[in-house]
Amino acid sequence: MIAIIDYNAGNIRSVENALSRLGCEYVLTADPAVIRAADKVILPGVGNAAAAVAELRRSGLVPLIRSLRKPVLGICVGLQVLCRDSEEGPCEGIGLFDAHVRRFPGAGAVSKKESLRGMLPATDSPGAGDERPVAKVPHMGWNALGNLDGKLFAGLQGGCHVYFVHSYYPTLGPDTIATCRHGDTLFSAALRYENFYGTQFHPEKSGAVGGQILRNFLTL
């Protein structure tokens, strides 16, 4: 049985759907006894990290989460709340992952349209040579993973794409087990500390690659 921690974390329908597709039994719960008895725990999260941390503290579940020794997976904001702190709010995190959560540089503060250099006709095509930044915020869409490390990524190769939707990112550090680049920013796409795992991307929306990552987590 998988416990999805229920703490008003926003719309988590897609996580439930993904577990159903994988034929996995799950329960959405805030009951400490049920969480303790589960084989694996998923900490979802959509929206604002400061609000999520506040909800989690209010629920009284933080000491329980810290004490878990079974595999725990934080997804998106569920990862961010497990970091040291976040610029969103700003707020203190639970501090299991040795990483900080920072905002992507906003429009105008990032590199120019490198992606199209060499692909555009040499002459003045409309908009060519404009100063529009390439790294849009939020970072939304499919991006490639690099530096994959460990069992969560068993069967996958660097360069595989997963789906991201976020404006804040976890920094690189000793707990980084996958990286991703958005504009000039290289960040942790996934983190691991002991039995705690986190993905900044949404494996539940990431097609076959995401399905593999979830299966890997479920068989840890």
Binding site: S125, P126, G127, D130, R132, K136, M140
Partner: peptide
């Protein structure tokens, strides 16, 4: 292209 040039969203 003109639309992409003036917008910061996809």
């Amino acid at each position: 292209a003109r639309l992409c040039g003036i917008l910061s969203i996809p």
